[in-house]
Design a protein around this nucleic acid. Sequence first.
DNA 1: CCTTCTCTAACGCGGACGGG
DNA 2: CCCGTCCGCGTTAGAGAAGG
Length: 626
Amino acid sequence: MYETNQFINLSEISLLYHDKSIVSESMWQTVCRAIIKDLREEFDLNIRTKRYDSLPESTRQSIRNYINLYKLILGVDRSGNIITYLDRNFETEIKIYYDGTCQGIKGYCPFDIDYKFLPALSFDHRLERYKTIVKREGYRYIAPKTMLGGSFNGALVKMKSQIGGMDLRCGNCHTFRHHKLYYFARIYNFLKLLSIKNIDKNTSHVLYSVNLLAKQYFEHTKKDIKLSEKNTPAQVLSRIRNQISRLVKKKYVIEYIFGENYLCPICEKVNINDHLTCFEAHHTNEALFENGLQKIEFGLYYTKSIKWLIKNLIAQECIYVCRNCHTMITAVNYNENALTILRNEIDTLYVNNFYDNLYKKVNEKRDIIIHWKSLLKNNMNTFPNPFLKMFDYGESIYSALICIYYICEIFSQDTKKEFFIAEELNYIQEKSSSYFKQYKSNLLDLEYIQYEKRLLQYRGFGFNKDIYKITFEGILKAKELIEERSGGFPDEFKELVSHWEHRNRKYNARKQRLSAFDIVLICIYFIYNKEIDFFMNAFHYIIDKENSYFSKHRKKLLNLEYITENQETANSFKEINITPKGITRAEELISLIKRDYFRKYQKLISDWEKRYDEYLMNHNKKNLKK
DNA sequence: CCTTCTCTAACGCGGACGGG
DNA sequence: CCCGTCCGCGTTAGAGAAGG
């Protein structure tokens, strides 16, 4: 629509048609409004008054907000450019001086943002955790956005009501101030040095670092975290881990699409190494979303896989810009009404120039995305998926099936043992004894495995045991899965299988298990070396079992001639001695256990030592009392 | 548009206990 | 001795509300 620059002064016209019945200013205003209304309705003229009331309400509101903000930060009101607040105890006044520039972090803003970038500036409550203070002490909280609406004086009053005062900050500095996790030095440095090359080269190391950093950050913030029944330390830790990995993914995605050391294309002051959190996804093509396609808010979806993120960013034609520049892009009303808001032609010229440049630069980056999109359309590209797990959530059953296939079909080719038992599978997969049972019924229902009873010899005893075999369907499914996994994760899959093979060899090679009977014998040997008088009491105390425990194994120990018993009278203590045969057996067992279960053995012995000392102390106390 | 907070389902781990 | 079952707590991944 074409707009003239014609100004009409109603006061001049009024001289011609002066009606003496109009005596007050307010009456004159009413008449003027009526005249304008008539001109609009009768002649269909688009008249803009000085108040811009021909604009839509939302636009007017927006312009009013900008004008109020502009006045506030430059101190245009009568009291000068210092605004006075009360501190949090209503005791002393604090005065904050605004000069229209971002106050940054600790007084420094690296982005050079001043009043000409008005939309990018915002007020920020100076007190940290203002909200919680407000809730606890009953102060009034007004969101900086809503503060500016209405009249200028109203905005001023609202602002002054905020205890502790408001700082003026640009969007980028604002994110820094509130993103405490990113501000944590170790996490910040980790992300700064991280690049797409590091991740591709050693994905598992990155995951390990993320885990470690999460723990460190958790320790750092432990005091401030409110723990509850639902909000357990483990929950908090997992949240932190997620947050860090989100930042890692964000960096990966930006680097993958736009290259390393990405700069904000518009201001060219913000880079992903130093200011990762300042970057936001900007949808460059609004026309895509006219036909009901939903815009993705990417901030909510950094938990998704990198592949998903890259695909969708390209499909939705997004580029990354810093928060300040993004606000400038979206602030259409500011762009169109810069002169009205700033009331200064030189500044307006600057703003107009900025916007001209901005659109050019956005389009330059957009070309990159369009290029990616053409590759995507022609299926010319497969996107990386570094943090994807081989077995997704709920797919452990597949992992079990593949392992079963390898045990029954591949590893047993030499031994010709085509079945497995539950214990074996759990051992090979390094899981707890209840691991297999979780999938057993499922696998049986799907007819991937079948079972039969078989008498197996174990340590001289015969047991009817369930043994499991893989079925034909199971083999088919396993082969299909193997093809799928070894295609998607060639290295990881190879590594996994070789690990299983190693564990399988270890399982077949092991001669002894840490059985309860063996432990009893070793414990007796341990006590025998300590030369304790009260054998039974000491034994039960050290091995940490109830009083009947020894009797369970007594007969077997006597039968095998590992110990001898000697009881002089019916009421006297049994004297128990370990035989030379028992000693050699115990030593043999220890060397075996040390070889296979060194850590477990060490822990066992250290526990025994601890309880032995405790026992001696208690025993001596009793003796002293006597 | 992004982050934090809170809640939740489903899976994972391992100890206790009793039957065969 | 192994195995199955029960149980409590930890972990993972994500939804949704609310705040900036």
